[in-house]
Protein backbone atom coordinates (compact mmCIF):
# COMPACT_ATOMS: atom_id res chain seq x y z
CA UNK A 1 0.00 0.00 0.00
CA UNK A 2 1.58 3.30 -1.03
CA UNK A 3 1.08 6.60 0.75
CA UNK A 4 -0.58 8.28 -2.22
CA UNK A 5 -4.02 9.53 -1.26
CA UNK A 6 -6.59 8.29 -3.75
CA UNK A 7 -9.65 9.72 -2.07
CA UNK A 8 -9.92 12.68 0.24
CA UNK A 9 -13.29 13.58 1.72
CA UNK A 10 -13.08 16.81 3.65
CA UNK A 11 -16.04 18.06 5.66
CA UNK A 12 -18.58 16.56 3.28
CA UNK A 13 -22.03 17.66 4.39
CA UNK A 14 -25.52 16.76 3.32
CA UNK A 15 -28.57 17.90 5.20
CA UNK A 16 -32.07 16.51 5.00
CA UNK A 17 -35.00 17.40 7.21
CA UNK A 18 -34.44 14.49 9.60
CA UNK A 19 -30.85 13.58 8.87
CA UNK A 20 -27.46 15.20 8.45
CA UNK A 21 -24.28 13.70 7.07
CA UNK A 22 -20.95 15.19 8.06
CA UNK A 23 -17.94 13.13 7.11
CA UNK A 24 -14.18 13.44 6.63
CA UNK A 25 -11.74 10.68 5.79
CA UNK A 26 -8.91 9.72 3.48
CA UNK A 27 -8.17 6.61 1.51
CA UNK A 28 -4.63 5.66 0.55
CA UNK A 29 -3.71 3.89 -2.68
CA UNK A 30 -4.24 0.13 -2.62
CA UNK A 31 -6.16 0.25 0.64
CA UNK A 32 -9.52 -1.43 1.29
CA UNK A 33 -11.73 0.70 3.50
CA UNK A 34 -14.93 -0.81 4.82
CA UNK A 35 -17.65 1.62 5.82
CA UNK A 36 -20.07 0.04 8.25
CA UNK A 37 -23.10 1.32 10.03
CA UNK A 38 -26.73 0.50 10.66
CA UNK A 39 -29.49 1.25 8.14
CA UNK A 40 -29.94 4.99 7.85
CA UNK A 41 -26.44 5.80 9.11
CA UNK A 42 -25.65 7.55 5.81
CA UNK A 43 -23.54 4.98 3.94
CA UNK A 44 -25.47 5.22 0.66
CA UNK A 45 -25.89 8.99 0.98
CA UNK A 46 -22.11 9.23 1.35
CA UNK A 47 -21.55 7.17 -1.83
CA UNK A 48 -24.19 9.17 -3.72
CA UNK A 49 -22.58 12.46 -2.66
CA UNK A 50 -19.16 11.21 -3.72
CA UNK A 51 -20.39 10.10 -7.15
CA UNK A 52 -22.43 13.25 -7.78
CA UNK A 53 -25.77 11.43 -7.76
CA UNK A 54 -26.77 13.68 -4.87
CA UNK A 55 -25.32 17.18 -4.58
CA UNK A 56 -23.53 17.76 -1.31
CA UNK A 57 -24.29 20.87 0.74
CA UNK A 58 -20.71 21.47 1.77
CA UNK A 59 -17.19 20.15 1.91
CA UNK A 60 -14.78 18.89 -0.69
CA UNK A 61 -14.22 15.56 -2.41
CA UNK A 62 -10.93 14.92 -4.19
CA UNK A 63 -10.08 11.78 -6.12
CA UNK A 64 -6.49 11.13 -7.26
CA UNK A 65 -5.68 14.68 -6.13
CA UNK A 66 -8.30 16.14 -8.50
CA UNK A 67 -11.38 18.07 -7.50
CA UNK A 68 -14.57 16.18 -8.32
CA UNK A 69 -16.43 19.35 -9.34
CA UNK A 70 -13.88 20.26 -11.98
CA UNK A 71 -12.68 16.85 -13.23
CA UNK A 72 -15.81 14.72 -13.00
CA UNK A 73 -15.37 12.75 -16.24
CA UNK A 74 -11.63 12.24 -15.84
CA UNK A 75 -12.07 10.98 -12.28
CA UNK A 76 -15.01 8.70 -13.04
CA UNK A 77 -13.12 7.08 -15.91
CA UNK A 78 -10.56 5.93 -13.36
CA UNK A 79 -13.06 4.48 -10.92
CA UNK A 80 -15.61 1.70 -10.94
CA UNK A 81 -18.85 1.66 -9.00
CA UNK A 82 -21.46 -0.77 -7.80
CA UNK A 83 -24.60 0.90 -6.51
CA UNK A 84 -26.88 -0.65 -3.91
CA UNK A 85 -29.14 -3.33 -5.44
CA UNK A 86 -27.28 -2.94 -8.76
CA UNK A 87 -29.82 -0.58 -10.39
CA UNK A 88 -28.89 -1.42 -13.96
CA UNK A 89 -31.28 -0.88 -16.81
CA UNK A 90 -33.94 -3.58 -16.41
CA UNK A 91 -35.30 -3.37 -19.97
CA UNK A 92 -31.90 -3.71 -21.62
CA UNK A 93 -30.10 -6.92 -22.47
CA UNK A 94 -27.10 -7.62 -20.24
CA UNK A 95 -24.88 -7.54 -23.36
CA UNK A 96 -26.24 -4.09 -24.28
CA UNK A 97 -25.63 -2.86 -20.74
CA UNK A 98 -22.00 -3.98 -21.09
CA UNK A 99 -21.65 -2.31 -24.49
CA UNK A 100 -23.19 0.85 -23.03
CA UNK A 101 -20.76 0.89 -20.10
CA UNK A 102 -17.80 0.08 -22.36
CA UNK A 103 -18.42 3.22 -24.40
CA UNK A 104 -17.66 5.43 -21.38
CA UNK A 105 -14.37 3.83 -20.36
CA UNK A 106 -11.39 4.16 -22.68
CA UNK A 107 -9.60 1.41 -20.74
CA UNK A 108 -12.46 -1.10 -20.92
CA UNK A 109 -11.00 -4.60 -21.24
CA UNK A 110 -13.34 -7.01 -23.06
CA UNK A 111 -11.01 -9.90 -22.25
CA UNK A 112 -11.43 -9.27 -18.53
CA UNK A 113 -15.18 -8.72 -18.98
CA UNK A 114 -15.52 -12.02 -20.84
CA UNK A 115 -13.45 -13.81 -18.22
CA UNK A 116 -15.81 -12.60 -15.51
CA UNK A 117 -18.91 -13.41 -17.60
CA UNK A 118 -17.60 -16.95 -17.99
CA UNK A 119 -16.63 -17.26 -14.34
CA UNK A 120 -20.05 -15.99 -13.18
CA UNK A 121 -21.93 -18.09 -15.79
CA UNK A 122 -23.78 -14.93 -16.71
CA UNK A 123 -26.34 -15.16 -19.53
CA UNK A 124 -25.76 -11.88 -21.32
CA UNK A 125 -28.58 -12.51 -23.81
CA UNK A 126 -31.15 -12.06 -21.06
CA UNK A 127 -32.68 -8.76 -20.16
CA UNK A 128 -31.45 -7.36 -16.84
CA UNK A 129 -34.96 -7.58 -15.41
CA UNK A 130 -35.01 -11.33 -16.16
CA UNK A 131 -31.81 -11.99 -14.20
CA UNK A 132 -31.92 -13.14 -10.60
CA UNK A 133 -30.74 -10.77 -7.87
CA UNK A 134 -27.45 -12.62 -7.61
CA UNK A 135 -26.89 -12.52 -11.37
CA UNK A 136 -27.71 -8.80 -11.43
CA UNK A 137 -25.12 -8.27 -8.71
CA UNK A 138 -22.59 -10.20 -10.80
CA UNK A 139 -23.40 -8.10 -13.86
CA UNK A 140 -22.92 -5.06 -11.63
CA UNK A 141 -19.46 -6.34 -10.71
CA UNK A 142 -18.54 -6.86 -14.39
CA UNK A 143 -19.57 -3.27 -15.17
CA UNK A 144 -17.64 -2.00 -12.15
CA UNK A 145 -14.38 -3.85 -12.78
CA UNK A 146 -13.90 -4.43 -16.51
CA UNK A 147 -11.97 -1.22 -17.06
CA UNK A 148 -9.46 -2.14 -14.33
CA UNK A 149 -10.31 0.92 -12.22
CA UNK A 150 -7.81 2.41 -9.82
CA UNK A 151 -10.59 2.93 -7.27
CA UNK A 152 -13.66 0.76 -6.83
CA UNK A 153 -16.69 1.96 -4.87
CA UNK A 154 -18.96 -0.88 -3.79
CA UNK A 155 -22.19 0.05 -2.04
CA UNK A 156 -23.75 -2.90 -0.20
CA UNK A 157 -22.67 -5.36 -2.90
CA UNK A 158 -23.71 -8.47 -0.98
CA UNK A 159 -27.03 -7.23 0.40
CA UNK A 160 -29.68 -9.84 -0.33
CA UNK A 161 -27.25 -12.44 -1.68
CA UNK A 162 -27.27 -16.01 -0.40
CA UNK A 163 -24.16 -17.22 1.52
CA UNK A 164 -22.79 -19.05 -1.54
CA UNK A 165 -23.03 -15.96 -3.72
CA UNK A 166 -21.54 -13.87 -0.93
CA UNK A 167 -18.53 -16.16 -0.69
CA UNK A 168 -18.14 -16.02 -4.46
CA UNK A 169 -18.25 -12.23 -4.35
CA UNK A 170 -15.56 -12.09 -1.65
CA UNK A 171 -13.43 -14.43 -3.75
CA UNK A 172 -13.85 -12.23 -6.83
CA UNK A 173 -12.78 -9.12 -4.93
CA UNK A 174 -9.74 -10.97 -3.57
CA UNK A 175 -8.73 -12.10 -7.06
CA UNK A 176 -9.24 -8.59 -8.32
CA UNK A 177 -6.88 -7.27 -5.66
CA UNK A 178 -4.27 -9.83 -6.66
CA UNK A 179 -4.79 -8.95 -10.32
CA UNK A 180 -4.45 -5.16 -10.32
CA UNK A 181 -4.64 -4.06 -6.65
CA UNK A 182 -7.22 -1.29 -6.85
CA UNK A 183 -8.16 0.86 -3.91
CA UNK A 184 -11.56 -0.24 -2.64
CA UNK A 185 -14.24 1.57 -0.69
CA UNK A 186 -16.82 -0.92 0.46
CA UNK A 187 -19.97 -0.21 2.43
CA UNK A 188 -21.94 -2.92 4.15
CA UNK A 189 -23.85 -3.71 7.26
CA UNK A 190 -22.70 -7.32 7.01
CA UNK A 191 -19.64 -7.43 9.24
CA UNK A 192 -18.44 -10.73 7.76
CA UNK A 193 -17.83 -9.01 4.38
CA UNK A 194 -15.87 -6.27 6.03
CA UNK A 195 -13.91 -8.72 8.16
CA UNK A 196 -13.02 -10.71 5.04
CA UNK A 197 -11.96 -7.81 2.86
CA UNK A 198 -11.27 -4.53 4.65
CA UNK A 199 -7.95 -3.40 6.00
CA UNK A 200 -9.38 -0.32 7.64
CA UNK A 201 -12.88 0.19 8.95
CA UNK A 202 -14.96 3.34 9.31
CA UNK A 203 -17.93 3.10 11.63
CA UNK A 204 -20.67 5.46 10.53
CA UNK A 205 -23.19 6.43 13.16
CA UNK A 206 -26.04 8.89 12.57
CA UNK A 207 -24.23 10.55 9.68
CA UNK A 208 -20.84 10.88 11.38
CA UNK A 209 -17.70 8.78 11.44
CA UNK A 210 -17.67 7.47 14.99
CA UNK A 211 -14.40 5.61 14.53
CA UNK A 212 -11.97 4.88 11.73
CA UNK A 213 -9.22 2.41 12.46
CA UNK A 214 -7.19 -0.37 10.88
CA UNK A 215 -8.66 -3.84 11.32
CA UNK A 216 -5.48 -5.17 12.94
CA UNK A 217 -5.42 -2.33 15.42
CA UNK A 218 -9.10 -2.76 16.22
CA UNK A 219 -8.68 -6.44 16.89
CA UNK A 220 -5.59 -5.89 19.01
CA UNK A 221 -6.78 -2.91 21.04
CA UNK A 222 -10.32 -3.96 21.93
CA UNK A 223 -10.66 -6.39 24.84
CA UNK A 224 -13.25 -7.52 27.31
CA UNK A 225 -12.11 -8.14 30.90
CA UNK A 226 -14.35 -10.51 32.74
CA UNK A 227 -14.46 -11.04 36.51
CA UNK A 228 -16.44 -10.55 39.65
CA UNK A 229 -16.75 -7.30 41.48
CA UNK A 230 -18.27 -6.41 44.85
CA UNK A 231 -18.94 -2.79 44.00
CA UNK A 232 -19.28 -1.91 40.31
CA UNK A 233 -19.29 1.80 41.17
CA UNK A 234 -15.53 1.56 41.85
CA UNK A 235 -15.00 1.10 38.12
CA UNK A 236 -14.87 4.60 36.65
CA UNK A 237 -17.23 4.61 33.60
CA UNK A 238 -15.06 7.24 31.92
CA UNK A 239 -12.17 4.78 31.67
CA UNK A 240 -14.07 2.12 29.76
CA UNK A 241 -16.10 1.80 26.59
CA UNK A 242 -18.67 -0.22 28.50
CA UNK A 243 -19.22 -1.81 31.88
CA UNK A 244 -21.73 -4.63 31.85
CA UNK A 245 -23.04 -6.25 35.01
CA UNK A 246 -24.71 -9.63 34.80
CA UNK A 247 -26.84 -9.63 37.96
CA UNK A 248 -27.74 -13.30 37.61
CA UNK A 249 -24.18 -14.63 37.58
CA UNK A 250 -22.65 -11.68 39.39
CA UNK A 251 -20.09 -11.33 36.58
CA UNK A 252 -18.84 -7.95 35.47
CA UNK A 253 -17.53 -7.29 31.95
CA UNK A 254 -15.50 -4.20 31.25
CA UNK A 255 -14.70 -3.32 27.66
CA UNK A 256 -11.69 -1.31 26.62
CA UNK A 257 -10.47 -0.01 23.29
CA UNK A 258 -6.99 0.76 24.64
CA UNK A 259 -5.81 -2.64 25.68
CA UNK A 260 -2.48 -3.12 27.42
CA UNK A 261 -1.52 -5.76 29.99
CA UNK A 262 -1.25 -2.97 32.61
CA UNK A 263 -5.03 -2.71 32.52
CA UNK A 264 -5.27 -5.99 34.44
CA UNK A 265 -3.69 -4.37 37.48
CA UNK A 266 -6.00 -1.39 37.15
CA UNK A 267 -9.15 -3.50 37.18
CA UNK A 268 -7.80 -5.51 40.05
CA UNK A 269 -7.26 -2.29 41.99
CA UNK A 270 -10.84 -1.33 41.18
CA UNK A 271 -12.04 -4.55 42.79
CA UNK A 272 -12.42 -6.92 39.85
CA UNK A 273 -11.31 -10.33 41.00
CA UNK A 274 -9.62 -12.91 38.73
CA UNK A 275 -9.97 -10.84 35.55
CA UNK A 276 -10.08 -12.91 32.38
CA UNK A 277 -9.12 -11.18 29.14
CA UNK A 278 -11.15 -11.98 26.00
CA UNK A 279 -10.58 -10.70 22.47
CA UNK A 280 -13.53 -9.10 20.70
CA UNK A 281 -14.52 -9.82 17.13
CA UNK A 282 -15.54 -7.06 14.71
CA UNK A 283 -19.23 -7.80 15.16
CA UNK A 284 -18.88 -7.12 18.90
CA UNK A 285 -16.76 -4.02 18.36
CA UNK A 286 -19.38 -2.77 15.88
CA UNK A 287 -22.03 -3.23 18.56
CA UNK A 288 -20.13 -1.09 21.06
CA UNK A 289 -19.12 1.62 18.58
CA UNK A 290 -22.55 2.00 17.07
CA UNK A 291 -24.00 2.10 20.55
CA UNK A 292 -26.35 -0.82 20.52
CA UNK A 293 -24.61 -2.31 23.53
CA UNK A 294 -23.36 -0.85 26.79
CA UNK A 295 -25.71 2.10 26.52
CA UNK A 296 -27.32 1.56 29.91
CA UNK A 297 -24.06 2.53 31.60
CA UNK A 298 -23.89 5.75 29.62
CA UNK A 299 -20.18 5.35 29.42
CA UNK A 300 -18.70 7.98 27.16
CA UNK A 301 -17.01 5.91 24.48
CA UNK A 302 -13.30 6.46 24.62
CA UNK A 303 -13.10 6.53 20.87
CA UNK A 304 -10.95 8.66 18.72
CA UNK A 305 -10.95 9.30 15.01
CA UNK A 306 -7.80 8.97 13.06
CA UNK A 307 -7.05 9.73 9.44
CA UNK A 308 -5.14 7.69 6.92
CA UNK A 309 -2.28 10.12 6.97
CA UNK A 310 -1.56 9.42 10.60
Amino acid sequence: MSDMIVLEVEGLEKHYRNFSLSVSFRLASGEVLGVVGPNGAGKTTLIHCMLGIVKRDGGRVRFFGLDMDQHEVEIKQRMGFFLEEAPLFRRMRASDVLKFFASFYPRWDWRLANKMIQQFELDVDKKVGELSKGMRAKLGLVTALSHRPELVILDEPTAGLDPGMRREFVQVVRELRRDFSPTILLTSHIMADIEDLAERIAFLREGEVALIESKTRLLSSWRRLRGRCQDVRQLNPGDWVAIEHDHASGEVHVVTNRWSPALIDRVREAGLTDPEVCALNLEEIYGYVIGARGREFEAPPAIRTESASE
Binding site: Q77, W110, Q118, D123
Partner: peptide, 28 residues
Amino acid sequence: MRLYDPGAEERQEGSPCGGRESKISSPG
Protein backbone atom coordinates in the same frame (compact mmCIF):
# COMPACT_ATOMS: atom_id res chain seq x y z
CA MET B 1 -24.33 -19.64 -20.26
CA ARG B 2 -23.05 -17.99 -23.37
CA LEU B 3 -19.80 -16.14 -23.72
CA TYR B 4 -20.33 -12.62 -24.91
CA ASP B 5 -18.23 -11.60 -27.87
CA PRO B 6 -18.73 -7.98 -28.78
CA GLY B 7 -16.66 -8.44 -31.93
CA ALA B 8 -13.45 -7.18 -33.31
CA GLU B 9 -14.57 -3.57 -33.44
CA GLU B 10 -14.92 -3.26 -29.68
CA ARG B 11 -11.80 -5.29 -29.08
CA GLN B 12 -9.89 -2.82 -31.18
CA GLU B 13 -11.27 0.03 -29.13
CA GLY B 14 -10.77 -1.67 -25.77
CA SER B 15 -7.15 -0.89 -25.33
CA PRO B 16 -5.64 -3.74 -23.28
CA CYS B 17 -6.97 -6.37 -25.72
CA GLY B 18 -6.61 -4.39 -28.89
CA GLY B 19 -3.14 -3.23 -27.98
CA ARG B 20 -4.00 0.42 -28.43
CA GLU B 21 -2.70 2.82 -25.77
CA SER B 22 -5.34 3.62 -23.21
CA LYS B 23 -6.29 7.21 -22.73
CA ILE B 24 -8.07 8.99 -19.94
CA SER B 25 -9.90 12.12 -21.00
CA SER B 26 -8.75 15.56 -20.11
CA PRO B 27 -11.33 18.22 -19.34
CA GLY B 28 -13.17 19.29 -22.46
